[in-house]
Every structure is written in structure tokens, then in C-alpha cells.
Design a protein around this nucleic acid. Structure first.
Lengths: 233, 233
DNA sequence: GAGATTTTATGCTAAAAAACATAATTAGAA
DNA sequence: TTCTAATTATGTTTTTTAGCATAAAATCTC
């Protein structure tokens, strides 16, 4: 328990986290009232049909949020990075979760339960605006993504996903390796294609010198070309 | 100008509109400060890259919101019915509009400019929560839709769209005709398919006795079968 | 109301992507 | 470590859907 609270500490101090909108008193309230949860790789954080419990702030780790569609085939609808918000959309839409969140690596979450969350929203409009902003950005992302996934061809969709992963998680010190290691299946589920097509197209990109692959490590070799492939569909 | 304000009146009085969250003083403020805009069928309300001006409340009419993708092909991301909210997502995401809104029939909008909107959010947390709720519902819709449009086959996508139109706009007095008349092209753009496939699949549904078509009027004859087609993909 | 334009309808062909099959490789468990 | 299971790789076939063509019907414009 002691350990737990220490693990969330960095998330109260980050300049990127929604908690920066809180007054010192409110931040103390959150420090006292929050709970902290730890997940190992592949652990499920919440799943479709679960009841939402409040606001989840990702302190550490990486998370995929996906929805199961036809024949249990999963489509990743969101990738979360540290200080991103999760789990509160369903609360406000007054429904159960419509997607499943799974840890892609060891993950630490800071949890604000729904009553505490409502209290903060009611007494601090900047905090409320922060939540509005988060939903507004996610909705923009989702709308753009719907069109890209439905209209672009396989190469365009995969190129877009690679660029998206780079934007979201950044690059390692070599300035070219994307800082996330996904299975080909996850890459396929992100890009709306079968696993074999993801594998095939990745190796085509590699043979074209656009990327290089080493197991699950993807290096971007020619970002201009990747952007061209992505935008031409 | 006089005329204009009268046209928005019904929207201040509806039990479904976000203005119900306002205090009487705030409602008066809105009555004084709002502006009212009229659009004819096919008029553009805002388009991609336009700067957002505030909150738009649809008082009367029907609106499609679409995004242009590969080869200017449009994908409808939202259909708006009276008392639905529009145009404020981009404001909070701090970006320009990423989609175009077009009137599908003669339409009346109530416009709250962004400074007035911010004032209302800051002084009334129920109003802020109403906006959060609207975005949260839209985001859920968008995520569900992304998966349906990418994973379902043509028949499933079209069946889903027909059911969605029925849910959104309701039925006429005969209890079977959907209360919106869209071109085959719009139906195609809603369902992620080419116009010819929309036409073809609609006439297949008709010959199977699932629906009947009379020009742009669609009657649902066998809703159970339609639901089955939609859910099986 | 005649002519032009748009929308709807249907058939045919081509392209894209899924499905399937079979290895090779890698990672995980006993 | 060795065996097993999962992941990655690649070739082939089949299905789905887009693209194109043509014509009929409906709508708009002058």
C-alpha cells in the first residue's frame, strides 16, 4: 500500500498530467484519496461490459484499448502512453465499457473513484475543461482514424500506423527505432488487416528500404517515403 | 433578426436540449447573446479547416457531418438531429474543424459564441458535464462505428446503417418508413461502400423482403432479419 | 415541356485483401 | 535443456468489393 502510493507520485508531478489543473488543496485530496494499481504485461485493466469505476491515469507503462468485432477479431481503437487518461468515457456516457484495456508492458495506474472525480469537476472548471479537451482530442483522433482505416489501402494503413506509433511513443536514442515493441498481430489489429498481411507488408516496406525490422524492433529509415505511402492511401 | 430569434425559441424550451442545465439567469443570457442561423438543403454549415466559432445547437432540420478521405471520397462520421450539439469539439481540441457539416434539409441553428460558451462552462458545472456527456457519447459511437465499418461486410454495414437511421430519426406514422430521405450516395458514404454497391445491396434487401424502397423512402419490413444481417457482419 | 443533368439500376471486369496452407523461427514451460 | 506452443514468414487460392460501362428513370433548368 505504501509502495503503491510512491509509485503514483511521479504522475502528480508531471507537467503533462491533468492534475496540473488542480489547486494545491485538491491535489492533496487526490494524493489521499487515489488508489494505485499495478499490472503485468498482458493483464486486463478493464474489459467490455465492465462497469466504469472512475478516472484512470496511466503513470507508467503502455496500454492498448481494443474492441472485439466480427468473429472476436480485435480492433485497437486507442494506444495510451504515460499521463494519458482512460476509463472515464463510459462513466459520462452512462454505459458500461465498450472496449477492453490491456497492459502492453508492466503498468502503473492512478485511480480516482467516480465520486471524487465528480467532486473535482464540480469545484474546478479548469479540471472539467481538461477532461473535455481529452475527450475532444480522442474524438478527433477516432474520426480521422475511421476514415483512414476504411479508405486507405493496406500499405497506406500500415504506413499510417507506423507513423502514429512513432508520434505516440517516440524514438530511442538512435533516433530511428520506435519505442514500442508490438507483435505483428497487434500491428495488424491496429491497422485493420490480417496478421499475414501485416507481416507481408512490413517485409515489403523493409525490402523497399522504408523501414528495417529486427524481431519486434522497427526502425524508420525513410520517413518522407513513409509519409507519402500513408497519404496516398 | 427578429424572425431569427423566434426561430430558436423552441430549442430553449425543449426538455432534451443542453440548455435545461442552465439557471434562469443563464438561460436569459443565452437568449440575449445567441445568434440564429438558417440554412437551406445542401448548404455548408462549416467545412474542414474552418476555425470553430462556438457551440452550435441544431434547432430544426437534419445535418450530416463528413470527412473527405482518399480521392475526395466522403465518409459520414455523424448524423445530427434536433437539439444535437455540433461544432465545439474542435474548439476544445484546439484545432480547426476536421470535418464538414452540411444541411440535409432546411435547418435552423442556435449559435453560442466561444467566449459566452466558456463563461457558461466556468460558472455551471452541470452544463460542463452536459458537454462532457455529449462528447463521451459521440466518442463511444465513433469507436463502435470504426469497428463495424472496418470489420463487417457490405450487407452488415448497410443493415447497420439502416437501423442507425431508424434509431436516430425515427419512423413515420405508418410505423415503418424511416424519417429521413437520403440519396443512395449518402447512404453509401455513411456505410463505407461505393454508390453502386449501396444501390445493389438495397435492392437485394428489397427483393429479400427485408425492406421496401420507393424512391428515397425506405420502409423496414423485417427488423429482426435486418438486425441479424447487421450483427452477423 | 424539351433538353440537359443527375440519380438510380444492373451487368461485367479487375483489383484488393482475406483465407488457407505450410514452413521456419522464436519464445516459453516442464 | 528439450519439448511444446506461439509467432513470423511466404506462397497460393478464393472471396469480396471497387471500378467501369451502359442504360433507364427522375429531376432540374431554361
Amino acid at each position: 500500500m505504501m509502495q503503491k502510493n510512491i509509485d503514483c507520485e511521479k504522475c502528480f508531478e508531471s507537467p503533462d498530467v491533468i492534475f496540473t489543473k488542480l489547486t494545491p488543496e485538491q491535489l492533496n485530496f487526490v494524493r489521499e484519496r487515489h488508489s494505485c494499481a499495478h499490472y503485468k504485461k498482458n493483464d486486463i485493466i478493464f474489459k467490455e461490459e465492465d462497469e466504469p469505476i472512475g478516472l484512470l491515469v496511466l503513470c507508467e507503462g503502455k496500454v492498448k484499448v481494443f474492441r472485439e468485432g466480427v468473429g472476436r477479431r480485435e480492433q485497437i481503437v486507442r494506444m495510451v502512453k504515460p499521463f494519458g487518461l482512460m476509463g472515464f468515457r463510459a462513466l459520462f456516457a452512462e454505459e458500461n465499457h465498450i472496449a477492453t484495456a490491456m497492459a502492453l508492458e508492466d503498468t502503473v495506474l492512478c485511480i480516482i473513484d467516480k465520486d471524487d472525480l465528480m467532486k473535482l469537476i464540480r469545484e474546478n472548471s479548469d479540471f472539467a475543461i481538461g477532461l473535455i479537451r481529452s475527450l475532444a482530442s480522442d474524438l478527433g483522433f477516432s474520426n480521422r482514424r475511421t476514415v483512414a482505416l476504411t479508405q486507405k489501402h493496406i500499405r497506406g494503413r500500415l504506413a499510417e500506423s507506423i507513423l502514429f506509433l512513432k508520434e505516440t511513443y517516440g524514438l530511442e536514442d538512435d533516433d530511428s527505432t520506435i519505442k514500442i515493441y508490438l507483435s505483428r498481430e497487434d500491428i495488424a489489429n491496429l491497422s485493420n488487416m490480417t496478421t499475414s498481411n501485416a507481416i507481408r507488408t512490413l517485409s515489403t516496406f523493409s525490402s523497399e528500404g522504408v523501414i528495417s525490422i529486427n524481431g519486434r524492433k522497427i526502425k524508420i529509415l525513410d520517413i518522407k517515403k513513409l509519409e507519402r505511402i500513408s497519404s496516398l492511401g
